[in-house]
């Protein structure tokens, strides 16, 4: 009580002013039509603006669910594409109806950490063995292009050998004529890789699109990788030296898909038989 009195003694003028001014404003709004209309209109605008802000914030919260939803839809579409399916059409007595079985499926993942500056770069993704990720699975970008190959998996995370790794070897082919070679990275520019082992009788032009060949069973066939930037054939050499400019920028990759080959076991079985 004493404190309240002291407060009133110190700020009495201001409190009285505030009280009386507030009373006046209430009276103005209550008993004057024009001011009442203005007040209601302004109040409406204010609440509308506030609601819009709240909407924006809740929309932002909803983005996560939206990304998951879009990833699921993308996976559905990617699974439907020809390069992700195994064709069971076989010519017997008459041509059977063209039918396919699922061959590739995809696991959406987010990049947790990434590097591009060393000679052997790797990424870490937030999906692991618990989500069905296994070593030697391919990783593609949610835009266009490749990211790398899974090396090790933990329960909830996996480590990916980046395309930009001195040991990365990707089987790639020229989209226009099908000649295939091996894509490697010699360090340096994170936007450029070298396509090796394209024979000298192949016709290579600057601007040709490079895609995955599908021979490795890691990536589906026909995923776009980049464009030929320069193709050189040294005197007396049998293979081109081709520089490929990548479509995707690995320094800002954020959403990726891990490629799961459902027929992987069969290929491994054959590999073992070959080794014996």
């Amino acid at each position: 009580m004493r404190g309240l009195l002291q407060l009133f003694a110190a700020y009495g003028g201001f409190l009285a002013f505030f009280l009386l001014e507030a009373t006046s404003l209430v009276l103005i709004v209550q008993y004057n039509h024009r001011q009442k209309d203005i007040f209601n209109n302004s109040w409406g605008l204010l609440t509308a603006a506030a609601e819009k802000q709240v909407d924006n914030i809740t929309e932002y919260w909803g983005l996560k669910a939206r990304v998951l939803d879009l990833q699921a839809r993308n996976i559905k579409l990617m699974e439907e594409r020809d390069n992700a399916r195994y064709s069971t059409a076989v010519y017997r007595d008459s041509l059977q109806a063209d039918s396919t079985a699922p061959m590739f499926t995809f696991i959406a993942a987010n990049v947790v950490s990434n590097s591009i500056i060393s000679a052997n770069n790797s990424l870490r993704l937030d999906r692991g063995a618990a989500d069905g990720v296994k070593p030697h699975m391919g990783v593609i970008s949610s835009d266009e292009g490749l990211v790398g190959i899974v090396r090790e998996t933990a329960e909830h995370y996996c480590r990916v050998m980046s395309l930009l790794h001195s040991q990365s070897r990707i089987k790639a082919s020229i989209r226009r004529n099908g000649y295939f070679g091996t894509l490697a990275w010699n360090g340096g520019d994170p936007m450029r890789m070298q396509l090796e082992a394209i024979p000298k009788h192949a016709e290579v032009a600057v601007g040709d699109t490079i895609q995955t060949s599908g021979y490795s069973q890691i990536f589906p066939k026909g995923i776009l990788i980049g464009k030929v930037e320069s193709a050189k054939l040294g005197p007396g050499e049998n293979f081109y030296t081709i520089t490929v400019k990548l479509f995707n920028d690995l320094s800002k990759v954020q959403y990726v898909y891990i490629v799961d080959n459902l027929m992987r076991d069969e290929h491994e079985e054959l590999d073992r038989a070959e080794d014996e």
Binding site: G12, G13, A16, L20, S24, L25, L27, Q30, N32
Partner: peptide
């Protein structure tokens, strides 16, 4: 100051009643 504020408010309200603009003169006076 409290007395000044209240008397200003009272005079403003009285004027408002004649001007049919309750609160406008009172608010300005305060």
């Amino acid at each position: 100051q409290v007395v000044a504020l209240f008397s200003a408010f009272a005079l403003g309200i009285l004027v408002d009643m004649s001007y049919d603009s309750l609160g406008v003169h009172a608010g300005a006076s305060v």
